[in-house]
Simulated assay, not measured.
Amino acid sequence: MASCALLLVACASGPARRVSEPSARIQQLTVRADGNWSTDLRIENFSSITMRFDALRLELEVEDHPAGTLQASPGVTVGPESADVVTVELAPTAAAKFAVARALADGRSIEYSLQGTMTATPNESRQREFEMERRSALSPAPGLPGVMR
């Protein structure tokens, strides 16, 4: 009888709940007619539980030129080990605008970095702030003028 009770208790606990550092990356950067950028940020939840992403504040650099701050309150809920995309508008600095325009004109890739914080609430828990840093690159999207992916 005691062994059956222990087995039931072990099964009731379920899988481990793991909260991992989330991340974000630029999925697409679109240069609008007014010179500002529309950035599609892919928010990645590496946790084994659902998380609601309440805020983000990420400093963007393009080819080592500060471009500006991507700041938003997406309020998006992302399932375990999943991702979602939010769009954030940015009025970039002149140096960053020029670097992206030059890369688009030359048809070449451009390096970028994101650094800052993401505020998220793990399912059934308290809100937490996560530090984030990412380096990657974007390339011109064939057939889509002014778009880098």
Rank of each mutant, 00 (worst) to 15 (best):
M1L: 02
A2W: 10
A2P: 03
S3E: 07
C4T: 06
C4Y: 01
C4F: 03
A5W: 00
L6P: 02
L6W: 07
L6D: 08
V9L: 14
A10G: 10
A12V: 14
G14S: 13
G14I: 11
A16R: 13
R17N: 10
R18W: 09
R18G: 02
S20Y: 06
S20C: 09
E21F: 04
E21N: 05
E21G: 03
P22S: 11
S23R: 10
S23W: 10
S23N: 09
R25L: 13
Q27S: 03
Q28G: 01
T30K: 01
T30F: 00
T30M: 01
V31Q: 01
R32W: 04
D34F: 11
D34L: 03
N36E: 15
W37M: 01
T39N: 12
D40W: 08
N45I: 13
F46V: 04
F46Q: 04
S47F: 14
S47E: 11
S48E: 08
I49Q: 13
T50R: 05
T50C: 06
M51R: 09
R52K: 15
D54P: 13
A55S: 12
R57Y: 07
L58H: 06
L60M: 05
L60D: 00
V62Y: 03
V62A: 01
E63Q: 12
E63D: 13
E63L: 03
D64V: 15
D64T: 15
H65G: 09
P66H: 14
G68M: 00
G68Q: 01
G68P: 02
L70S: 03
Q71R: 01
S73M: 13
S73K: 14
P74Q: 02
G75S: 07
V76A: 05
G79R: 05
P80R: 04
E81K: 12
E81M: 13
S82V: 00
A83C: 05
A83M: 12
T87C: 12
V88Q: 03
V88K: 05
E89R: 07
E89Y: 02
P92H: 00
P92Q: 02
P92V: 01
T93R: 02
A94P: 02
A94T: 00
A95I: 01
A101C: 10
R102H: 05
A105E: 12
D106W: 14
G107R: 08
G107W: 11
G107C: 06
R108P: 09
S109F: 04
S109H: 07
S109E: 04
I110Q: 08
E111T: 13
Y112A: 07
G116V: 11
G116A: 08
G116E: 02
G116M: 10
T117Q: 04
T117K: 10
M118I: 15
M118K: 10
T119A: 12
T121F: 03
T121K: 04
T121I: 10
T121P: 05
P122C: 12
E124P: 05
S125V: 12
S125N: 12
R128N: 14
E131Q: 14
E131R: 11
M132K: 11
M132S: 13
M132A: 14
E133A: 11
S136H: 13
S136K: 14
S136D: 15
L138I: 14
L138R: 04
S139Y: 10
P140L: 03
A141P: 08
A141S: 14
G143P: 06
P145W: 07
V147W: 00
M148Y: 05
M148C: 04
M148A: 08
R149C: 00
